[in-house]
């Protein structure tokens, strides 16, 4: 019995050491998507100027522009719903700011919500296949062909930004845009900051849709001369759940 226990402790010690020893080895053999991303010096970010959203039409044109260009299906029910950018009341957008005496205006207005393209994205941290990854320019992107549909990223996202294709979305796309891929059932999707348009030198679809009143401002937050930076310097802005340390890339002027 004594020898057994001694033997056990010896083996336990060796196995713990070798187990711990294998961690850096596995780490080295498998390039880390999140930590290994070199920073290109650029980080795309968005400012949502809530003062500019006045009519229903102001919201609708942004949402429609995004959803039509990205082949986002409309299932007509909330259970299967897929959405990239949408409206949310103040109390849901900033639940930790709950206040009975908030101004009547704040109680009424809806905020534009979308993926925050976090600097420290929890979704990227948990994805077991690197199907969701952070690019050098800060965009948190999806590889629809690699996603296994485990939905760990949906559990990890503290902003409820991710949607899952619970069914084949293709029959529910009103007008197909052949410039952007449609998705298969069983994969997760979300806002991609229009990386496909940025690659062509265009602004994101939602930003372009409301360019006359400049309700959404988009640009490189690391560039001190960019429009977003100037707006951030001259306005008080807030971000969703900053206490979680995710460093969201979407700012709100209230």
């Amino acid at each position: 019995m004594e020898t057994n226990r001694r033997q056990f402790l010896k083996i336990l010690g060796f196995s713990t050491l070798s187990g711990l020893g294998s961690i850096p080895a596995i780490w080295a053999l498998t390039p880390n998507s999140e930590l290994g991303t070199p920073n290109s010096g650029k980080r795309w970010a968005m400012v949502v100027d809530m003062k500019k959203f006045k009519t229903e039409e102001d919201y609708k044109k942004c949402i429609d522009a995004c959803h039509s260009v990205h082949n986002v299906p409309d299932f007509g029910n909330s259970k299967d719903e897929v959405k990239w950018i949408w409206k949310m009341p103040y109390k849901n957008t900033f639940p930790e700011q709950e206040d009975d005496y908030i101004s009547g205006e704040m109680k009424q207005i809806s905020f534009m919500v979308l993926c925050n393209h976090c600097k420290n994205p929890p979704c990227v941290r948990v994805c077991p296949t690197k199907a969701t990854f952070k690019r050098a320019d800060g965009i948190v992107q999806m590889d629809y062909h690699r996603c296994i549909g485990c939905r760990f990223c949906m559990a990890a996202c503290p902003y409820g930004s991710r949607s899952f294709n619970f069914r084949d979305p293709r029959p529910f796309i009103k007008e197909k845009n052949t410039e952007y891929p449609t998705r298969a059932k069983g994969v997760v999707e979300k806002c991609n900051f229009c990386e496909e348009r940025l690659a062509k030198g265009l602004m994101p679809a939602c930003v372009e849709a409301c360019k006359d009143n400049k309700a959404l401002i988009f640009g490189d937050i690391n560039d001190p001369n960019s429009e977003v930076r100037k707006i951030l310097e001259s306005n008080y802005t807030i971000r969703r759940k900053p206490e979680l340390g995710t460093q969201p890339g979407v700012y709100y002027i209230v």
Binding site: I23, T30, N32, E34, R125, V126, P128, T129, A131, R146
Partner: peptide, 12 residues
Amino acid sequence: NMILYPTPNSIM
């Protein structure tokens, strides 16, 4: 894909 693209930062 979990084996083809092993991702140690994922607890899964």
